[in-house]
Each structure stands twice: as C-alpha cells, then as structure tokens.
Simulated scan of single mutants.
Amino acid sequence: MPRLDAERRHSVAFTLNGAPARVEVEPRTLLTDALRHGLGMTGTHVGCEHGVCGACTVAIDGVPARACLTLAVGVEGCEVRTVEGLAPEPGRLGVLQAAFRRHHALQCGFCTAGILMSLDAFLRLRPRATRAELTEVIGGHLCRCTGYAPIIEAAVEAAAMLRGEAIEEISTHA
C-alpha cells in the first residue's frame, strides 16, 4: 500500500532570525511545533492553539503571524523572526525588551514574546506610533498578570527611544 502524503516528511528551508534554517516536518506540523521542537526556539509560546491569545506571534516576512495557525511548510523561503531574534547580540536586550524590563511589563512572561513581536513589527512600520495605536496593537494579546498598564508604558518608551528621543523627553510626549 502506498504511503499517504500526510505520512511523508518535508524539508522546509527558510531564514530564522537572520540565519539559514532547515527543519524536517510532516505536512500538518504547525510552525509553533517546528520552531519549538525542531529548532529549539522555545521563546515562541503555545497558549490557546486557536490564534486568540497571541502568545505564539512571530514575524513572517516582517508581518506578525500566529504560529499556532501557520503550517510549517508554509514558511518555505520566508524570513521568520522569533523573540530570540530581537536581541542585538547574545546577552544583550533589544530596545523593546529593555523597556519591558524597566517597566516590569511582564510577570509570568507567557504572553510577553508574542506582544514583543507584534510591537516590533508595528514600530518598524509606524515609528511615530501614538499611545492609542500601541494600545490597540497589544489589544490583540491576552495577558492575565500585568493589567496592561506597564506593557503600554514600556511600548511608549521603546517607541520614543527608537525615534532617538531621550528618556527625559518621553514623559512629555507620551
């Protein structure tokens, strides 16, 4: 009896956080599973598995996407960025990550990676984002610990810093 297509594994090649990556997956393998179990990128969390909570958000070709709803075979040839790709170098935090740390914008940290990825993608498109726009971006994520206020403050600060404004100026523009 011939093997069904679903039983065959496929080699998927793409760029992951700026470096070439390849992973062997079944056709039905979700990107979350390929990243976490196939490539060790455990910063991408699996929450609701329905695309609602946002914990699994990654950037695919610069656009935020729910990795729990994306088949791994669908990223063939794409540029995928995970939260691990936000750090400029090992042991150093990126601007958004450092702002989250300063503002205590995480507690359990489960939602944090997805929120960071959405904010990063949005700020690349809209570096002059307003507080209201940043609030709307994180509105697509569920956080059960922080109450969102510190997340918004961190996002506002990071946006200002990415625009090159000094921290002292941030409170007057926010």
Rank of each mutant, 00 (worst) to 15 (best):
C78G: 01
A21Y: 06
I152D: 13
C68G: 13
A98H: 12
L119F: 12
V95P: 05
I60S: 10
A98Y: 03
L31G: 05
P150W: 11
R131S: 04
T172L: 07
T15W: 10
P127K: 01
T146S: 12
E133S: 04
S11M: 08
G74C: 09
T29M: 08
V75Y: 03
L71R: 11
A59H: 07
A99P: 09
R92I: 10
C48E: 00
L116M: 15
A159P: 04
N17F: 06
C78D: 11
N17C: 10
G62S: 14
D120Y: 13
G38Y: 08
I138P: 02
P150V: 13
R92Q: 14
E169Y: 00
H37A: 06
M161L: 15
T57N: 12
C56K: 02
F100M: 08
A129N: 04
G85V: 05
L4N: 04
P90Q: 02
R163W: 06
G51T: 08
E168A: 12
A132I: 08
C53V: 11
G47V: 03
A160Y: 01
R102A: 14
G91Y: 01
E79I: 00
G74A: 14
A132K: 08
M41T: 01
A121S: 15
A160H: 05
T135R: 14
P127C: 02
S118C: 15
F110Q: 02
H141K: 09
A99C: 14
V83L: 02
R8C: 00
A121C: 14
T42R: 12
L119T: 10
V12A: 03
A19C: 04
P2N: 02
Y148M: 11
R81T: 14
G43S: 09
A13P: 05
A129I: 04
V63D: 15
V46E: 13
P20R: 05
E153W: 01
N17S: 11
E168H: 05
T135C: 03
T32M: 01
R101L: 14
T15V: 15
V12L: 04
P88M: 00
M117R: 13
L142F: 11
